[in-house]
C-alpha cells in the first residue's frame, strides 16, 4: 500500500444505511451491465443493437430469461462447486422503446432478478436491479451496391441501481451496484434479401460501489474502506441474421472484457470488482403475429463459450412485446 498523505483525521467507518440513502445518488440506469455472468437479454431491438423504431412508434415488452451454470471460472480455472450446485438466475426484464424521430430512438430497461443455488446453504436474493435509459442516434445512412441499406448508430446509455441491493453476496447478489454510463457505436447492414450483419462495440464507465463492511481483500491487497473502485468495461458484438416482415433472426457473438480487477482466488468467493470476462453466442427468434401485427413474440438461447470469473452459463429466454403508433 502506498503512503497516504497525512490528511485531517476522521474516523473511518462504514456509512450508516440511512446516511447512504440520503447521499446524492442519481437514480438513472445501468441494465445489461450486470450479469456479465447472467442475463444477456435479446439481440435486436435491445438498447445495444443497430436498429431504430420509426418516428412516433413505441414498443413495450417483457422478456423472461433464465440463466444457469454449474461450472464457473475461478480466475481462469474452470471448476464446479458442490456447495453451489447449479446457480440459476431468473430475470424478468421490462423494456420500453420510443421513436422520437426517424433518427433517434429512446429506450429504458428494468430487470427484476432472482438468484438461487441448488446445493449448499446460501440463501438466494431477489429484487429490482438497475434501471437503464438509452438514446440511439443514427449518424450514417447509405445504400450499398444498390441493394443494401447501411446504417451506423451512436448509443449512449446510463444506469443506476433501482434499489438498495447488496453487491457483496456474489454469486447470489442480484447485481453489481455501480452507476454506469456507456457509449457504443453500432453498424447495421441489411441486404434486400433479408440477410443482415450487425457489429457494435462499446465502453462503459462505472462508479465506485459501497459495501456494508469496512474492509475487503481483492487483487492482492487489503483495502481498509467500504468503497470499491470498479474497473471499466469494454464489450463488442458481431452477428448475422435474417429479417423479413414476420421474422427477425439474429445470431450474435458477444464479448465482454473488464479493464482491470482481480481474479477470484483459489476457493474464494467472487468479488464485485473481479475481472469478469466472457464470450457468448446468442441466438434469438422474433416473430410478428400475422393476426395481430402489433405483437411480437420472441425466444432466445445463449451459451457462454469462454470466460473468466463468471459462470459458464446457458440462458433461455422468451418474451412478448407490443408496438403502437402514437
Amino acid at each position: 500500500m502506498s503512503a497516504p498523505a497525512p490528511v485531517p483525521v476522521r474516523p473511518r467507518a462504514v456509512r450508516s444505511r440511512s446516511a447512504r440513502r440520503s447521499a446524492v445518488r442519481p437514480r438513472l440506469a445501468a441494465g445489461l451491465a450486470l450479469l456479465g455472468a447472467v442475463a444477456a437479454p435479446a439481440a435486436a431491438q435491445s438498447l445495444d443493437d443497430g436498429l431504430l423504431l420509426p418516428r412516433r412508434t413505441a414498443r413495450v415488452g417483457v422478456v423472461q430469461a433464465t440463466d444457469r451454470w454449474d461450472h464457473y471460472w475461478e480466475g481462469t480455472r474452470a471448476r464446479t462447486n458442490e456447495n453451489l450446485g447449479t446457480v440459476a438466475t431468473r430475470v424478468t426484464l421490462l423494456h420500453a422503446m420510443y421513436g422520437l424521430t426517424d433518427r433517434v430512438t429512446l429506450g429504458a430497461t428494468l430487470p427484476y432478478v432472482r438468484t438461487e443455488a441448488t446445493q449448499g446453504v446460501l440463501k438466494g436474493q431477489q429484487g429490482w436491479q438497475d434501471v437503464t435509459v438509452a438514446a440511439k442516434l443514427r449518424v450514417v445512412q447509405a445504400r450499398v451496391a444498390g441493394r443494401a441499406a447501411l446504417s451506423a448508430l451512436a448509443v449512449g446509455a446510463a444506469g443506476a441501481p433501482a434499489t438498495d441491493y447488496t453487491p457483496d453476496l456474489l454469486p447470489m447478489s442480484i447485481g453489481l451496484g455501480a452507476r454506469r454510463a456507456s457509449l457504443r457505436g453500432a453498424v447495421h447492414l441489411a441486404d434486400r434479401s433479408g440477410v443482415f450483419v450487425d457489429a457494435s462495440a462499446g465502453r462503459a464507465w462505472r462508479s465506485t460501489v459501497r459495501l456494508d463492511r469496512p474492509a475487503y481483500y481483492t487483487d492482492g491487497r487489503l483495502t481498509l474502506s467500504d468503497e470499491v473502485r470498479m474497473p471499466d468495461v469494454a464489450d463488442y458484438a458481431v452477428g448475422v441474421g435474417y429479417q423479413d416482415a414476420r421474422w427477425c433472426l439474429p445470431l450474435m457473438l458477444v464479448g465482454q472484457r473488464t479493464l482491470g480487477g482481480g481474479d477470484i482466488r483459489r476457493q474464494d468467493m467472487p468479488f464485485v470488482s473481479n475481472r469478469m470476462d466472457f464470450t457468448r453466442l446468442a441466438g434469438t427468434a422474433m416473430y410478428t403475429l400475422p393476426f395481430a401485427p402489433a405483437v411480437q413474440v420472441q425466444a432466445g438461447a445463449a451459451r457462454t463459450l469462454a470466460g473468466r470469473n463468471v459462470g459458464r452459463a446457458t440462458t433461455l429466454s422468451a418474451g412478448v412485446s407490443l408496438g403502437a403508433r402514437l
Binding site: R10, G156, A158, T208, S225
Partner: peptide, 24 residues
C-alpha cells in the same frame, strides 16, 4: 443530449478510493 445522458451519472463522481487508514 446523448453526451449529457452518458455523463450525468458519473459527473461529480469521485472514482478514487482511499485504500488505507490515514496515519499522520
Amino acid at each position: 443530449v446523448l453526451a449529457a445522458l452518458v455523463a450525468a451519472p458519473l459527473a461529480s463522481c469521485d472514482r478514487t478510493v482511499t485504500p488505507t487508514e490515514s496515519l499522520p
